[in-house]
Nucleic acid binder design. Sequence first.
DNA 1: AACCAGGTGGAGC
DNA 2: GCTCCACATGGT
Length: 281
Amino acid sequence: MQYTIVDDGILVLDADTFDPRDTLTSGQCFRFGQNPDGSWWVCASDQYAQIVQKSNNSYKILTKNPKFFEKYFDFLTNYDIIIDRLGKYELMRLALEYGKGVRLLRQDLLEVLICFIISANNNINRIRKTVSAICQNFGTKTDFGFAFPTLQQLKNIKLSDFVKFGCGYRADYLVDTIYKLTPEFLANLTQCADTQTARDMLLTLKGVGAKVADCILLFGLGRYDVFPVDTWIYKVYTEHFGGKETNRKKIAKWFVQTFGNDSGYCQQYLFYYKRKDIHLV
DNA sequence: AACCAGGTGGAGC
DNA sequence: GCTCCACATGGT
């Protein structure tokens, strides 16, 4: 893959390891969609981009802030090397053949934290609706729509608001966690020396258990020695790896021992592959 | 009408 | 530590 930063965005050529559908519908982010003309849109923090396919193998990312999306789409990482490494696993070859256009989004920590508390025992389309309502009602209005609320704005959201937006019983978790959150806590999370220290900090928050913590570590903190185990990954474990363990924490440990520092990438490719018959848009 | 969805908190042991 | 279970909500 090659890309060039231009005035109004990013031009992506030889886009074998970048596909907007693969990336945006792989369950990492929740503020995205496809336009009637086939192009895609995505919001992240207070930024916006539209992704237009230019040819069989090239895309134009239209945005006011190309540098932001260069980082966001993880273009600074060479995926060819990762994919080569993973090719030694038969199942990974199948998953990559299907979803090698997935990239691991480098998202804002606070947005990921809130979105993945909402994600628990929920489904992706409902999460999208809920997150969208939160932004529209409490985020800053921008020229493209609404930004994700800042910590201060989140602190204004009442329990009844979260219920109204469809959070269900997670509304209580959100209020409790947002109340406890401080800029210092978030800064300390990003500066942890090792993954387990950051995980232990996250687990002190209400609504953050083992799986949600691992998603936050992966998508919000760029830690790749994690393997979030949800219902889909549990199916992958039992059906494709013949696993017999039922404890999700132990399953996560087994995956991390198997895939090491590529765990985060593997998990995302496998998750997307297992869900290939489910279309979000 | 049961079952499912990127699970977690709490009770009881 | 561990295993159970209730939990909102909307879609199939």
